[in-house]
Amino acid sequence: MTGAPDDEALITQARRGDHEAFRLLVERYYRAAYASAYAVLGNAGDAEEIAQETFVQVYEKLDRLREPGALTSWIWRIARDSALKYIRKNKRIKAVGDAPDLKLDEERPHEPLVATEDKEQLMAALGELPDDMREALLMRYWEDLEYEQMAERTGVSATALYQRVCRGLKRLRETIERKDALA
């Protein structure tokens, strides 16, 4: 539609040493890597550092990427893993209490999340989501993409992505409520 080269073409050119092609790829997915790292770190400066590090890794390993269609999830994954490593390296480890012996009450009526509107809690809950749900939520609400844009990027249908977002929101709520019950 926009006439912009697709990922596969850019990857091919970047593999041949075309820095301009790689720059376009970075621009296209920089916010994704940044959002993925921010979801772990909660800090914009560190997240940007990790986003840059992510693309340095992507560049170095581009020859080994067998499925261009996996580029997005690969970038999300590298950014997330790099952010987790960064936390470990810097020993920003939070002690976690004993795991709860808690059963979620499926029938519990909706209660406002006012008491749990806390950034750290949100980040922790995001961290517990399955990758695909977290990516869908962050693409939608942090990158502000439309479902069609998300579908174009991931190769997954807009309907499936919408379902993923809804399931992700539900799971997020369950996780926050569980953590809230422990607090």
């Binding site: 820095h19 621009e27 949100l122 939520l137 609400y141 942090w142 539900k170």
Partner: peptide, 30 residues
């Protein structure tokens, strides 16, 4: 419930980032 979570996510969205500047920084590192 869903709208409340969406608002929560949007409230704690990361600050805007300059993808172009980021790309330049990446190229400089490469």
């Amino acid at each position: 419930e869903g709208r409340e979570l969406v608002a929560l996510l949007q409230r704690y969205a990361p600050p805007a980032v300059d993808s172009r500047a980021g790309a330049q920084a990446v190229l400089a590192r490469i």
